[in-house]
Nucleic acid binder design. Structure first.
Lengths: 235, 235
DNA sequence: CGAAGCCTTGATGCGCCTCAACGTACGTGG
DNA sequence: CCACGTACGTTGAGGCGCATCAAGGCTTCG
């Protein structure tokens, strides 16, 4: 667990690639460290976007809530990623909530300094916009998926995605590195926890995954990949 | 129809707000005009992103095609909007295709000059990033919609959206200003042309819309809005 | 005038949600 | 440390929303 800010450690993170150690030190001097207990909200959808953040340790769930109280998980943030960067896109409010999926450590900067910072460190600005580009593309990929693929494929894709981004090798296979429930998966894929449970039970029987309470280990990622890409029985 | 570039006319467009006439003139000097016939592709998904564009007249459909050949319409671009701005997000290739929905006139700039341009005209950069922010938010809104709402609601929302952004008042009601088919609507909402046709036939009977071949006129936008927001029979 | 594209409408079936009930692991407080 | 409450997971039965399959009418354009 991190107690002090060491520029030399943090500078290697992707958001800062291309910056000098001096620049990093100056930038870090303006940051405020932050701890977030599992389950706590770092910010809420609709709140004024006062800060942007860098996750140093943990995982964060980015969630949108509908007027009816339903939730949709927009994405997971892993350590080393920026989040809450509404200001970079000229937004006054956060478009979603950020919830700590486990105990987290992060840095925060006041949104005010975004423009000056981006101007002073073009590499940082470029990296940030690349991140945003990736997320826009990701959102549109998922839109296409939602529009054209069946639940089984979407759930398989979602799990593969999580494994790819946050997988940890274990004796059994590749484990998703944070607690994740059937309900979470259903909120990522636009289905119900029941359907997810049924699908995963099936896959467990087939030996593709091994899963327990808020825990998913993937054994046959190739087979899952086949499921993610297979067409319906017709056509 | 536009034959010459008049900085005074173009400078009032949102992408350039905050720029001086001098700056505009310099920027326009680097632009290449472009005409695109209805149905033609201005660029294709996956192609190298050599240029970014400003639509001066017409409407453009931004389309993603899946490996199976299915299409999903990501959005429509109206005149005055930028498109193809992959470079601003550090992308080497266009993430979708741009197809002229009607005969179009546009300007194009080489992607190379993006960074220098953004640095030279911060207002232009800020405006562009605001646009991108809006599109990211829009994509995520649609994701939530796809995940939580039924087809009827999504189709109603899509039509209301089109009306809001591209509606033209007529004797009958508000007409969507470009040719749009049942299939197009289905590709925006993740359903089939059959379902869209059935829904719109129903709404036509109820006097909410009036529609013909590639033509939609909305009469009762409030009633449509009710449909877009109404919950299922349960709950 | 024929062909191609767009729209409509019916019949049928299935994917997945909904409703329901129960089993099981966790953690919290007495 | 055990007992209880709560959150998570499983599995069945039933039904509905919407895709799919099918056929035909209408408009536009070459």
């Amino acid at each position: 667990m991190l107690t002090k800010l060491d520029p030399a450690l943090i500078r290697d993170l992707p958001p800062f690639s291309g910056m000098t150690l001096d620049q990093m030190t100056t930038l870090l001097a303006k940051a405020t460290p932050l701890r977030a207990d599992k389950g706590s909200h770092i910010f809420d959808m609709g709140a004024e976007a006062r800060s942007f953040f860098l996750l140093l340790d943990g995982y964060i769930r980015v969630v949108r809530t509908t007027p009816n109280g339903e939730q949709v998980i927009a994405r997971y943030i892993a350590s080393g990623e920026l989040f809450g960067i509404a200001e970079a896109l000229g937004m006054k409010q956060y478009p979603a909530s950020a919830v700590a999926a486990v105990d987290c450590v992060a840095l925060s900067w006041p949104s005010d300094i975004w423009h000056a910072t981006a101007a002073a460190y073009p590499a940082f600005a470029t990296n940030t916009y690349k991140t945003i580009g990736g997320r826009l593309q990701d959102a549109q990929d998922r839109l296409v998926e939602m529009a054209t693929e069946r639940v089984e494929q979407r759930v398989a894709s979602a799990i593969l995605n999580l494994v790819e981004r946050s997988g940890r090798q274990t004796d059994d296979g590749i484990l998703i590195d944070f607690p994740i429930s059937r309900q979470d998966i259903s909120e990522m894929t636009g289905t119900t926890l029941h359907t997810v449970s049924r699908l995963m039970s099936g896959w467990e029987n087939d030996g593709l995954v091994k899963s327990g309470r808020q825990k998913i280990t993937v054994i046959g990622s190739e087979a899952l990949s086949l499921i993610a890409n297979k067409e319906g029985s017709s056509q």
